[in-house]
Amino acid sequence: MKILTANSSSLGQLKNTTKPRLWLWALVLLVPLLVINLVSFVGPITHLVQLSFLQSRAGVISGTYSLENYANFFSDGYYWGLIGNSLMMSFTVTLITLGCSYPIALFLYRMSASSWRNVLFVLTISPLLVSSVVRTYGWMVLLGDQGVLNSALLGAGLLDHPLRLVNNRIGVAIGLVETLVPYMVLSLMAGFGRLDLSLEEAAASLGANRIKRFFRIILPLTVPGIALGCLLCFVLAISSFITPKLLGGGRVFLLATEIYDQAVIQLEWSMAATLSIIVLLIFALTLFLYSQFARRFG
Protein backbone atom coordinates (compact mmCIF):
# COMPACT_ATOMS: atom_id res chain seq x y z
CA MET A 1 0.00 0.00 0.00
CA LYS A 2 1.28 3.42 -0.88
CA ILE A 3 1.19 5.78 2.01
CA LEU A 4 2.01 9.46 1.77
CA THR A 5 2.80 9.50 -1.89
CA ALA A 6 0.79 12.48 -3.01
CA ASN A 7 3.12 15.11 -4.34
CA SER A 8 0.79 18.03 -4.67
CA SER A 9 1.10 20.64 -2.00
CA SER A 10 -1.87 22.28 -0.44
CA LEU A 11 -2.68 23.73 2.91
CA GLY A 12 -4.81 20.76 3.78
CA GLN A 13 -2.01 18.40 3.02
CA LEU A 14 0.62 20.33 4.91
CA LYS A 15 -1.15 19.62 8.12
CA ASN A 16 -0.85 15.91 8.34
CA THR A 17 2.26 14.83 6.69
CA THR A 18 5.92 14.78 7.45
CA LYS A 19 7.32 14.53 3.97
CA PRO A 20 10.91 15.74 3.57
CA ARG A 21 9.98 18.61 1.27
CA LEU A 22 7.56 20.08 3.78
CA TRP A 23 10.17 19.67 6.48
CA LEU A 24 12.39 21.85 4.40
CA TRP A 25 9.67 24.48 4.07
CA ALA A 26 9.17 24.56 7.80
CA LEU A 27 12.90 24.93 8.28
CA VAL A 28 13.10 27.84 5.85
CA LEU A 29 10.36 29.61 7.79
CA LEU A 30 12.05 28.92 11.11
CA VAL A 31 15.63 29.82 10.20
CA PRO A 32 15.51 33.62 10.70
CA LEU A 33 14.18 33.32 14.22
CA LEU A 34 16.52 30.43 14.97
CA VAL A 35 19.47 32.60 14.01
CA ILE A 36 18.33 35.47 16.24
CA ASN A 37 17.69 33.04 19.06
CA LEU A 38 21.09 31.42 18.66
CA VAL A 39 23.03 34.68 18.48
CA SER A 40 21.34 36.50 21.31
CA PHE A 41 20.02 33.74 23.54
CA VAL A 42 21.40 30.22 23.29
CA GLY A 43 24.94 31.34 22.45
CA PRO A 44 25.20 33.99 25.17
CA ILE A 45 23.69 31.82 27.86
CA THR A 46 26.00 28.91 27.04
CA HIS A 47 28.91 31.30 27.09
CA LEU A 48 27.75 32.72 30.41
CA VAL A 49 27.61 29.31 32.05
CA GLN A 50 31.04 28.51 30.66
CA LEU A 51 32.49 31.76 31.94
CA SER A 52 31.22 31.21 35.45
CA PHE A 53 33.70 28.34 35.65
CA LEU A 54 36.63 30.39 34.27
CA GLN A 55 38.62 33.27 35.67
CA SER A 56 38.84 36.75 34.31
CA ARG A 57 40.59 39.88 35.38
CA ALA A 58 39.89 43.33 33.99
CA GLY A 59 38.08 42.01 30.97
CA VAL A 60 40.61 39.32 30.05
CA ILE A 61 39.45 35.75 30.32
CA SER A 62 42.02 33.24 31.42
CA GLY A 63 42.55 30.09 33.40
CA THR A 64 41.04 26.69 33.31
CA TYR A 65 37.67 25.36 34.28
CA SER A 66 37.24 25.30 38.02
CA LEU A 67 34.77 26.00 40.76
CA GLU A 68 36.94 28.85 42.05
CA ASN A 69 34.33 31.56 41.49
CA TYR A 70 31.68 29.57 43.28
CA ALA A 71 34.09 28.83 46.11
CA ASN A 72 34.87 32.54 46.41
CA PHE A 73 31.21 33.36 46.33
CA PHE A 74 30.18 31.03 49.11
CA SER A 75 33.18 31.78 51.32
CA ASP A 76 32.64 35.54 51.22
CA GLY A 77 30.29 37.00 53.78
CA TYR A 78 29.65 39.96 51.53
CA TYR A 79 27.96 37.77 48.94
CA TRP A 80 25.92 35.99 51.59
CA GLY A 81 24.78 39.43 52.68
CA LEU A 82 23.76 40.20 49.11
CA ILE A 83 21.65 37.08 48.90
CA GLY A 84 20.06 37.90 52.24
CA ASN A 85 19.33 41.48 51.18
CA SER A 86 17.88 40.39 47.85
CA LEU A 87 15.68 37.68 49.30
CA MET A 88 14.47 39.92 52.09
CA MET A 89 13.74 42.79 49.73
CA SER A 90 11.91 40.57 47.21
CA PHE A 91 9.90 38.89 49.90
CA THR A 92 8.78 42.15 51.51
CA VAL A 93 8.03 43.79 48.21
CA THR A 94 6.00 40.80 47.04
CA LEU A 95 3.85 40.88 50.15
CA ILE A 96 3.22 44.63 49.92
CA THR A 97 2.45 44.28 46.21
CA LEU A 98 -0.08 41.58 46.98
CA GLY A 99 -1.73 43.83 49.55
CA CYS A 100 -1.98 46.69 47.07
CA SER A 101 -3.06 44.58 44.11
CA TYR A 102 -5.72 42.40 45.65
CA PRO A 103 -8.29 45.18 46.14
CA ILE A 104 -7.67 46.49 42.63
CA ALA A 105 -8.01 43.05 41.06
CA LEU A 106 -11.16 42.29 43.02
CA PHE A 107 -12.64 45.66 42.13
CA LEU A 108 -11.88 45.22 38.42
CA TYR A 109 -13.13 41.66 38.41
CA ARG A 110 -16.42 42.65 40.02
CA MET A 111 -17.00 45.59 37.72
CA SER A 112 -19.47 44.90 34.98
CA ALA A 113 -18.09 45.26 31.48
CA SER A 114 -18.21 48.90 30.51
CA SER A 115 -15.99 51.55 29.02
CA TRP A 116 -15.16 52.58 32.59
CA ARG A 117 -13.83 49.16 33.31
CA ASN A 118 -11.69 49.29 30.16
CA VAL A 119 -10.30 52.66 31.17
CA LEU A 120 -9.43 51.43 34.65
CA PHE A 121 -7.91 48.30 33.19
CA VAL A 122 -5.66 50.30 30.89
CA LEU A 123 -4.73 52.58 33.80
CA THR A 124 -3.79 49.53 35.83
CA ILE A 125 -1.44 48.15 33.23
CA SER A 126 -0.25 51.58 32.06
CA PRO A 127 2.90 51.46 34.24
CA LEU A 128 3.92 48.49 32.07
CA LEU A 129 3.75 50.71 29.05
CA VAL A 130 5.84 53.53 30.47
CA SER A 131 9.59 53.19 30.53
CA SER A 132 10.93 52.12 33.90
CA VAL A 133 13.47 54.97 33.89
CA VAL A 134 10.65 57.49 33.57
CA ARG A 135 8.73 56.00 36.46
CA THR A 136 11.84 55.72 38.59
CA TYR A 137 12.63 59.33 37.86
CA GLY A 138 9.08 60.17 38.91
CA TRP A 139 9.66 58.48 42.25
CA MET A 140 12.95 60.28 42.73
CA VAL A 141 11.11 63.54 42.21
CA LEU A 142 8.32 62.54 44.56
CA LEU A 143 10.38 61.01 47.35
CA GLY A 144 13.64 63.00 47.30
CA ASP A 145 14.81 65.16 50.23
CA GLN A 146 13.60 68.24 48.39
CA GLY A 147 10.95 66.18 46.63
CA VAL A 148 7.24 66.75 46.35
CA LEU A 149 6.29 64.76 49.39
CA ASN A 150 8.90 66.22 51.73
CA SER A 151 8.26 69.78 50.47
CA ALA A 152 4.58 69.35 51.17
CA LEU A 153 5.08 67.87 54.62
CA LEU A 154 7.71 70.42 55.61
CA GLY A 155 5.63 73.25 54.19
CA ALA A 156 2.63 72.14 56.18
CA GLY A 157 4.79 72.10 59.29
CA LEU A 158 4.23 68.42 59.92
CA LEU A 159 7.96 67.72 59.92
CA ASP A 160 11.03 69.69 60.88
CA HIS A 161 13.48 67.70 58.79
CA PRO A 162 12.83 65.68 55.62
CA LEU A 163 11.99 61.99 55.68
CA ARG A 164 14.71 59.85 54.15
CA LEU A 165 12.77 58.10 51.40
CA VAL A 166 15.33 57.66 48.63
CA ASN A 167 18.84 56.26 48.46
CA ASN A 168 17.76 53.56 50.87
CA ARG A 169 15.67 50.42 51.01
CA ILE A 170 12.41 52.27 51.56
CA GLY A 171 12.73 54.06 48.24
CA VAL A 172 13.67 50.87 46.43
CA ALA A 173 10.70 49.04 47.98
CA ILE A 174 8.24 51.79 47.00
CA GLY A 175 9.51 51.88 43.45
CA LEU A 176 9.44 48.10 43.11
CA VAL A 177 5.91 47.77 44.47
CA GLU A 178 4.64 50.27 41.94
CA THR A 179 6.46 48.41 39.15
CA LEU A 180 5.06 45.04 40.17
CA VAL A 181 1.42 45.90 40.91
CA PRO A 182 0.34 45.55 37.24
CA TYR A 183 1.85 42.06 36.99
CA MET A 184 0.22 41.03 40.25
CA VAL A 185 -3.18 42.40 39.23
CA LEU A 186 -3.05 40.55 35.90
CA SER A 187 -2.08 37.27 37.62
CA LEU A 188 -4.77 37.66 40.25
CA MET A 189 -7.45 38.40 37.68
CA ALA A 190 -6.38 35.38 35.66
CA GLY A 191 -6.83 33.28 38.80
CA PHE A 192 -10.21 34.76 39.70
CA GLY A 193 -11.99 32.54 37.21
CA ARG A 194 -13.54 30.36 39.89
CA LEU A 195 -14.87 33.33 41.80
CA ASP A 196 -18.58 33.25 41.18
CA LEU A 197 -20.86 35.83 42.75
CA SER A 198 -23.47 33.15 43.40
CA LEU A 199 -21.02 31.43 45.77
CA GLU A 200 -20.92 34.58 47.89
CA GLU A 201 -24.67 34.90 47.71
CA ALA A 202 -24.96 31.33 48.85
CA ALA A 203 -22.61 32.06 51.76
CA ALA A 204 -24.60 35.16 52.65
CA SER A 205 -27.86 33.20 52.59
CA LEU A 206 -26.22 30.79 55.02
CA GLY A 207 -25.48 33.66 57.37
CA ALA A 208 -21.88 34.70 56.59
CA ASN A 209 -21.19 38.40 56.97
CA ARG A 210 -18.92 40.45 54.71
CA ILE A 211 -15.73 39.61 56.57
CA LYS A 212 -16.48 35.93 56.92
CA ARG A 213 -17.38 35.76 53.24
CA PHE A 214 -14.02 37.23 52.34
CA PHE A 215 -11.96 34.90 54.48
CA ARG A 216 -14.02 31.75 54.00
CA ILE A 217 -15.05 32.05 50.35
CA ILE A 218 -13.19 34.65 48.30
CA LEU A 219 -9.69 34.23 49.68
CA PRO A 220 -9.52 30.40 49.50
CA LEU A 221 -10.86 30.41 45.94
CA THR A 222 -8.27 32.90 44.79
CA VAL A 223 -5.25 31.14 46.29
CA PRO A 224 -4.02 29.83 42.90
CA GLY A 225 -4.02 33.36 41.48
CA ILE A 226 -2.24 34.66 44.56
CA ALA A 227 0.43 31.98 44.29
CA LEU A 228 1.01 32.69 40.63
CA GLY A 229 1.20 36.44 41.19
CA CYS A 230 3.60 36.05 44.10
CA LEU A 231 5.85 33.77 42.09
CA LEU A 232 5.96 36.22 39.24
CA CYS A 233 6.56 39.25 41.45
CA PHE A 234 9.19 37.51 43.53
CA VAL A 235 11.32 36.55 40.54
CA LEU A 236 10.82 39.95 38.94
CA ALA A 237 11.81 41.68 42.16
CA ILE A 238 14.93 39.63 42.70
CA SER A 239 16.17 40.35 39.19
CA SER A 240 15.08 43.98 38.94
CA PHE A 241 17.89 46.37 38.36
CA ILE A 242 16.83 49.88 37.31
CA THR A 243 14.78 50.64 40.40
CA PRO A 244 17.36 49.51 43.01
CA LYS A 245 20.13 51.19 41.08
CA LEU A 246 18.48 54.60 40.83
CA LEU A 247 16.32 54.72 43.96
CA GLY A 248 18.99 52.96 46.01
CA GLY A 249 21.47 55.67 45.04
CA GLY A 250 24.37 53.24 45.27
CA ARG A 251 23.61 52.45 48.89
CA VAL A 252 21.39 49.43 48.48
CA PHE A 253 23.34 46.34 47.54
CA LEU A 254 21.43 43.57 45.84
CA LEU A 255 22.38 40.68 43.56
CA ALA A 256 21.19 42.43 40.41
CA THR A 257 23.06 45.67 41.05
CA GLU A 258 26.16 43.69 41.97
CA ILE A 259 26.05 41.82 38.65
CA TYR A 260 26.01 45.13 36.79
CA ASP A 261 28.77 46.66 38.87
CA GLN A 262 31.03 43.62 38.56
CA ALA A 263 30.50 43.39 34.82
CA VAL A 264 30.44 46.99 33.68
CA ILE A 265 32.45 48.88 36.30
CA GLN A 266 34.96 46.37 37.64
CA LEU A 267 35.03 44.21 34.49
CA GLU A 268 35.01 41.10 36.68
CA TRP A 269 33.14 39.09 34.07
CA SER A 270 33.58 35.69 35.62
CA MET A 271 32.29 36.79 38.98
CA ALA A 272 29.36 38.54 37.27
CA ALA A 273 28.62 35.33 35.39
CA THR A 274 28.77 33.35 38.64
CA LEU A 275 26.38 35.79 40.29
CA SER A 276 24.01 35.40 37.33
CA ILE A 277 24.05 31.65 37.71
CA ILE A 278 23.26 32.10 41.41
CA VAL A 279 20.26 34.27 40.46
CA LEU A 280 19.11 31.58 38.05
CA LEU A 281 19.48 28.95 40.76
CA ILE A 282 17.29 31.05 43.06
CA PHE A 283 14.78 31.25 40.20
CA ALA A 284 14.81 27.50 39.79
CA LEU A 285 14.37 26.96 43.50
CA THR A 286 11.44 29.40 43.61
CA LEU A 287 9.81 27.67 40.66
CA PHE A 288 10.28 24.32 42.33
CA LEU A 289 8.66 25.54 45.53
CA TYR A 290 5.81 27.03 43.52
CA SER A 291 5.21 23.79 41.62
CA GLN A 292 5.13 21.89 44.92
CA PHE A 293 2.63 24.39 46.25
CA ALA A 294 0.56 24.36 43.06
CA ARG A 295 0.37 20.59 43.10
CA ARG A 296 -0.96 20.61 46.62
CA PHE A 297 -3.44 23.46 46.31
CA GLY A 298 -3.96 24.00 42.60
Binding site: V39, P44, H47, L48, V235, L236, Y260, S276, V279
Partner: peptide
Amino acid sequence: LFTAPLLLPSIVLGLAILLMFVRL
Protein backbone atom coordinates in the same frame (compact mmCIF):
# COMPACT_ATOMS: atom_id res chain seq x y z
CA LEU B 1 12.96 27.83 22.97
CA PHE B 2 11.48 30.83 21.19
CA THR B 3 9.55 32.02 24.21
CA ALA B 4 12.23 31.15 26.76
CA PRO B 5 13.96 34.57 26.68
CA LEU B 6 10.79 35.92 28.32
CA LEU B 7 11.52 33.87 31.41
CA LEU B 8 15.10 34.96 31.83
CA PRO B 9 15.76 38.04 33.97
CA SER B 10 16.98 40.83 31.74
CA ILE B 11 19.98 41.49 33.99
CA VAL B 12 21.25 37.95 33.30
CA LEU B 13 20.33 38.11 29.62
CA GLY B 14 22.00 41.52 29.38
CA LEU B 15 25.22 40.25 30.92
CA ALA B 16 25.22 37.15 28.71
CA ILE B 17 24.73 39.25 25.60
CA LEU B 18 27.46 41.65 26.72
CA LEU B 19 29.95 38.82 27.11
CA MET B 20 28.96 37.33 23.75
CA PHE B 21 29.05 40.67 21.95
CA VAL B 22 32.52 41.42 23.30
CA ARG B 23 33.73 38.43 21.34
CA LEU B 24 31.62 39.20 18.27
